[in-house]
Design a protein around this nucleic acid. Structure first.
Lengths: 158, 158
DNA sequence: TCAATGTGATTGACACGTGAATCATGCGGC
DNA sequence: GCCGCATGATTCACGTGTCAATCACATTGA
């Protein structure tokens, strides 16, 4: 049997697919974020935080719990919360059980803003992302995503 | 025939595919960029600019020409060039034909840095992206990307 | 008790992105 | 020539991301 040498670099076709993929879906993300911003004055970060808080018991969470839940750096969350607090979307209050910690609480205004943003946002996802594909193709895309996740060993147990 | 009402929002499966896709490939991008940075001390922005300049006639380009080529906002490019110039990767010199313009010139150091970065970068693309998929699957991903590009009307002639 | 260490959270320095404003130069028509 | 507008490029203010440093409080063990 001949010696097999595995290519260590992509073929030009593979490289083209990589570049097209990353560039294209960067644009998709930007478009959907732009719609969110126009429709609801929310950034994707805002939305992510509001989504998590909306689903939380008592519409509130410990800051570090929130960071873990959405898988953000703590300092990133800190800045985000600061901006959102300035805009009145949430409140941070000292934590009774642990004086170091902070409870992040969704305000009524934050809840309202999130509620109002949901439908337009989902519509944007449908129009910009989902509608680009035939059903079969979307399923394949889901499978490819799954293959990537297992390649990267995401979804690994804690 | 019954009245057909087209869903205006994604099904939960479609939404899950969207979220998984965007999250997963965000991580892919971050990993490949991290490798580039570790291997070569270059950001993806640096790489993009160096790639364009390397391919340019005379290793130099007018600033606006460069911006158009890589499809960047002019102000974004301005900042990027400033940082890269400070690091000695390129030079900006006044333009003879048009005193408003600037010529961006790749320095020897910039050329060297780019050359050294190429192979490790391609390896990273292969290992992190390409190797995640079966060949058939990668082709499907390419087709899905194409579908998205035509959905967004990218690739439209100027 | 209290020093050592761990943990929750913020801060600071910087890289990077966008859009609006600015500034200088080119250029067409009078 | 020169006024007005177009164009090349940078600057500014701000949002957003990272990492390292910091600070306050908690916990633990001699």
């Amino acid at each position: 049997m001949g010696t097999m040498k595995r290519r260590s670099v992509p073929t030009s076709e593979e490289l083209a697919i990589w570049r097209a993929h990353i560039e294209t879906f960067e644009i998709v993300r930007a478009r959907i974020e732009a719609r969110l911003h126009q429709d609801s004055q929310l950034s994707s970060g805002d939305y992510r935080v509001l989504l998590a808080l909306s689903e939380a018991d008592g519409k509130s969470m410990r800051s570090s719990e929130l960071a873990a839940h959405i898988q953000w750096e703590r300092s990133r969350l800190s800045g985000q919360l600061g901006r959102m607090e300035r805009r009145g979307l949430l409140r941070r209050e000292p934590c009774a059980e642990d004086a170091r910690g902070a409870n992040v609480v969704l305000t009524d205004e934050g809840a309202r803003a999130f509620r109002a943003s949901t439908l337009p946002h989902l519509r944007a996802v449908k129009e910009v992302f989902v509608d680009a594909f035939a059903p079969e193709q979307l399923a394949q895309l889901g499978e490819a995503t799954g293959a990537m996740r297992s390649h990267l060993n995401l979804d690994a147990r804690p």
